[in-house]
Each structure stands twice: as C-alpha cells, then as structure tokens.
Amino acid sequence: MQKVRALIVDDSGFFRRRIRDMLTADPAIEVVGEAANGREAVEQVVRLRPDVVTMDIEMPELDGISAVREIMRRRPTPVLMFSSLTFEGAKATLDALDAGAVDFLPKRFSDISVDAAKARQQLQQRVKAVVKGGQGRTPTPASPAARNTATSAAASTTAPTTSSSRGVRAADLDLVIIGASTGGPMALQRVLTGLPANFPVPILLVQHMPANFTKAFAQRVDGLCAISVREAVEGDSLQAGQALLAPGGRHLGVVRKGAGLGVRLVEPREGQFYKPSVDIAFASAAEVAPGKVLAIVLTGMGADGCEGAKRLRQTGAHIWAQDEASSVIYGMPQAVARAGVVDRVLSLDNVADALKRLR
C-alpha cells in the first residue's frame, strides 16, 4: 500500500521531532521533509510534492496563514493546521481555513487526549483522513473570489437516495438544524452567506469545535451574513432570520418555549467524544418538534448525526445530505445516505439555493 507522504512545518525543532515521531509510528505514513518557516514550506511543497502538510500558524519570514495561501496558489495540497485553543488562536485558525487549510488540531496534544497513545492515534487518523478526503478534488480557499470562480463537480447532483424525494415547505417547519465536522466551518459559512435576512425558519448549527472556537466562528460568520449568527446561550429563543451555533464543549438541545422553541445546553458525560454532538441535537429536535424539522448533514469525519437522523426520520422529518464530490470528508453525509434516511443529496453550492426555495 502506498504511504501517505507528509511535510512537517514548524519553527520549533522540538515540535517537528515530536510530530515526526508520532506520524512515523504509523507504517502507513512517511515524513518526506520538514520546514522551519512558511517560505521553506512553500518551496518544499513544490519540490517534494507531499500528500499532506502539517502547519504551524506563528512562524518567522512567512506565517502559516500566508504559507497556506501561497501553497494553494502554487500547488494545492491538503493542509492540517496546529492551533492554540484560545480566542485569538481560533481567529487565526479560521483565517487559515479560509485560506484553504482543510482541518486543524490543538498544538498542545494534552488538549486532544490525556492519553498520549490516543493523541498519537488521532493525529495519524486525521492526517490520513484529510489526504483521503482530498483525493480527486483540489483544495481551494473559501474566499469570495474563489467561491465566485469555483465550479462544483457535482453542482447538479440533487438526486434522492431514498425511493422518493419528499417536498418540504417552510410553513411546515419549526426548525432547520445543520450538523458538520471536518470542512464544516467553511461549508457552513458558504451556506449561511447565501441566505436572505428574512429567511423564514430558525436555524441551529452543530459544528465539531472546541470551546473558544465557536464564539469566534459565530462572530466571523455573523459579519458576513444577512441573517444573524451567534453562539447559543442557555434559554435562547429560536427566531426566524437567526442561526444559533452550539458552543464548543457542550451539547445543544431543543425545548418548547411558549409557542416556539428554545435552546437547552447540556454538559457532556464522560466518554462522549463529540462535544457538541450532532446525534444529541438531532434526537432532541425529534422529540420536541416531531415531523417539523429539516436536518442537513454536511462534510465531516465519522458518523455523528446518523443515529439522530434515523430518529428524526421516524417522526417524519426531512433529511438532506451533502454529496461526496463537494465534501472535504465524506464520512457523516455518507453514513446517513447509507442508512437510507436521506431525501435529497446536494452539492454544497446548491444547499443555500435549496433552502431559499422553501415555501
């Protein structure tokens, strides 16, 4: 089997050695080079043609964000960023994702797992996943210019995966709820920026992100959107023209609040991997608003959202999923598609238009 060829970029020699040791512990991964700054990284990407790059953000000569932009211009390659789990670190990481990076991990590995072996395994899995997700598609920045010029390979893919594609009307919905993981921040940004200020149905967003990142992400997207976007807080009321984002490190649930719906935030139990969890949010919506939910599963690793989508579908809810061609990682959408509960499969570029056509 062909090995994944990785380039490690960090100005700390100690950190580069640590990453090398963690990656090469997996026989399926080969480290083909190292770089101490962004300028070296760009040169080595062009010369070595790695399958994946691990990239620090703060470096001399050329920072990680600028390096990602230059890599995407000269030789697009999947990039996995390392980030500090601070509010400022979150903003810088989101800039890197906007520049074209695929995913990110905490730079302090104890933030991934207190178990060193598990942290090593998660790094190895993430590196291989972003390479697999990038095969057959070119990583591109999510800037407005790139969005305007990019052409999706599956722009016309709207075929249902079930026997019939049921129509859905905004008047029949209490809630739209969207779940995503790897590749999700830029996917959500693309969907939400396509919606009008008077979008008639409240929206909940569940994105796998650590604490501190979700607030920064919500603020960032709110500044780009016609609708209001912010991090959810306990007791929030769901309103048309507004999207509420589940805070990192907590689960989001739905409750009845007068004639409408509200937000309930739940502390995770020990052993729960996804915090927030799409499954938990979907299951809560199924219980509180049976048959009156449109759930959308976007790009992401794993299968979070599949069990919740099954529960939603049992109540008569509508389920849409992103297609493989436009997904960074076709894990979560594939899981719900294979479960046979999806009404429509859509290219990412078509999701906002489909939502706008709800009547």
Rank of each mutant, 00 (worst) to 15 (best):
A101G: 08
F109S: 04
S83Q: 06
V45L: 10
D95Y: 09
M55I: 10
A90V: 06
P106S: 09
D51C: 07
R20I: 12
I65S: 00
D95H: 12
S66C: 12
T93S: 10
P78T: 09
S66I: 04
F82C: 03
K107S: 05
D10P: 05
D111H: 11
L48G: 06
G64H: 06
V45K: 04
D103P: 01
P60K: 07
R20V: 13
P60Y: 03
D11R: 08
F82G: 02
R16Y: 09
L97T: 03
F15T: 10
P78S: 08
R17T: 14
E70Y: 07
Q44T: 04
S110P: 00
R16N: 10
S83L: 05
A96H: 03
F87G: 11
D26Y: 03
A25G: 15
P76W: 11
A41R: 03
Q44M: 13
R73L: 14
Q44N: 13
V45C: 10
L48S: 07
A28E: 15
D56L: 08
F82M: 10
R73T: 14
E34D: 10
L62Y: 05
V32K: 05
L85P: 00
R17K: 14
L23R: 00
R49S: 14
S12E: 12
E40W: 08
K107P: 01
F14H: 13
V68Q: 00
E88V: 14
I57V: 15
R18M: 14
E70Q: 15
E40P: 07
I57D: 01
L97M: 11
D111M: 09
D63R: 06
I112P: 00
I8E: 00
D10V: 10
F82E: 01
I19Q: 02
D95S: 13
R20A: 07
Q44P: 01
G100T: 09
